[in-house]
Nucleic acid binder design. Structure first.
Length: 382
DNA sequence: CGTCTTTGACCGGCGC
DNA sequence: GCGCCGGTCAAAGACG
């Protein structure tokens, strides 16, 4: 190579020129190489920064998971101790013994949860954060319970006994019945493509009727997760114009454990039922705030129709008053329902209606989306 | 074959 | 007492 160059530079005139050209070329190439090296260093630095960020995020996620595990363990203990207390319409866990069949159902639902967890994220944040939030919900349930207890203490001696009684939710039900009131109902109005909204439970349809007041048929379902579960629900379209909105009415107490997806709704509806039980006087800030926590962006009201004390939760009607971002629930976007329709419902024909305002605004950037964001950046850089 | 849905019949509460 | 109406039952059919 050098020899060839020497030979080619044999011409004394051209040789000087070519030599200086070559040197310039060499310098330019060296400069280019240097630039590329610098860019390479920069890219390396950027990559290491991203990797550091990713690692720290992973650390954060693992911390969250650890906290969640601790919280869910406490949640289980609390459920065993006092979650069953105080709530008349309890769609959640009960004290009754679980049959083998129900255990099987529970196992299956847990397996399904694992599957869906994997689908949501490789790190499984969706489900984990739900259960982390569940511990918070449990705390709020206790707040509702305490608020109810305070109200009861004020009202009468008999009620004081009732509050102290472990099964006082049964007493409250009896009081309702004595007063001519039937079982507590919780209506949930939701926008949904499919009337059989995914509320975490398995339902078996046992009837359909066209009510006089509404030309659209009303479907009757009973819970099929347990053979003796007394919980019923009715599903009815809200009107011809709002074909995507359904009113789902829940009635009764589950006698079996529920999957986590169902306990979210159950905790909220239980809070609603507790609010009802404590009477119209319970429009205290704590109880309404608790309901706002369970159904953060939506409108809810209490009414009594045909002797049925009813809490109506309107998930089609956003309610976004002012609030600080610190008040965001951790994973409000994990709710299983589809809140697509912003249309307000027709004015309620119910009487004795108390309205409460939700306290929370928009869902924060979830950890899932944060991870997705980082993954996109990583894949783009590498 | 088991499970679920459909649908007409039936029952009980309520108002007149 | 009667009729209306909401809710439930249960047989038959559909479906996987």
């Amino acid at each position: 190579m050098i020899k060839e160059e020497t030979i080619s530079c044999f011409n004394p005139f051209d040789g000087v020129m070519e030599e200086s050209d070559k040197e310039e070329e060499l310098d330019a190439t060296k400069a280019k190489v240097e630039k590329v090296r610098e860019e390479n260093e920069k890219l390396k630095l950027l990559l290491s920064t991203i990797l550091n960020n990713y690692n720290s995020l992973q650390m954060h996620v693992s911390n969250v998971l650890r906290q969640q595990q601790r919280a869910s363990m406490e949640l289980d203990q609390d459920k065993d101790n006092d979650f069953d207390v105080d709530i008349s319409l309890r769609l959640g866990r009960s004290e009754q013994k679980i049959s083998k069949k129900e255990e099987k159902v529970d196992k299956i639902s847990n397996e399904k949860k694992e599957e869906s967890k994997d689908k949501r994220s490789a790190l499984g944040l969706g489900f984990q954060i739900q259960s982390y939030e569940a511990s918070k919900l449990d705390d709020l349930c206790r707040q509702v319970k305490n608020a109810n207890a305070e109200n009861k203490c004020v009202s009468s001696r008999k009620d004081v006994k009732t509050v102290r009684n472990e099964n006082h939710h049964q007493d409250v039900l009896e009081e309702h019945e004595q007063a001519g009131l039937k079982k507590t109902r919780v209506c949930v109005k939701a926008s949904c493509e499919d009337p059989s909204i995914n509320d975490g439970c398995q339902w078996r349809k046992y009837g359909q009727k066209t009510a006089k007041t509404n030309p659209l048929p009303r479907a009757y379902y009973r819970c099929s997760m347990s053979s003796n579960c007394p919980v019923r629900k009715q599903v009815q379209r809200c009107g011809e114009e709002e074909t995507s909105a359904f009113m789902t009415t829940y009635e009764g107490n589950h006698d079996h454990p529920l999957p986590m997806e169902a306990t979210h709704m159950a905790a909220g509806t239980s809070a609603a039922a507790s609010l009802l039980q404590s009477g119209s006087s319970s429009s205290s800030s704590s109880t309404s705030a608790s309901l706002s926590y369970f159904f953060p962006f939506h409108h809810f009201s209490i009414s009594t129709t045909n002797s049925h004390p009813t809490v109506t939760l309107d998930l089609t009607r956003p309610n976004y008053p002012n609030q600080s971002p610190d008040d965001y629930p951790l994973s409000s976007s994990s709710f299983s329902l589809n809140f697509s329709s912003p249309d307000p419902p027709p004015p309620s024909s119910h009487d004795n209606t108390l309205n409460f305002s939700g306290l929370r605004k928009q869902a924060p950037l979830s950890t899932d989306s944060l991870l997705a964001h980082y993954r996109t950046r990583l894949s783009g850089q590498q």
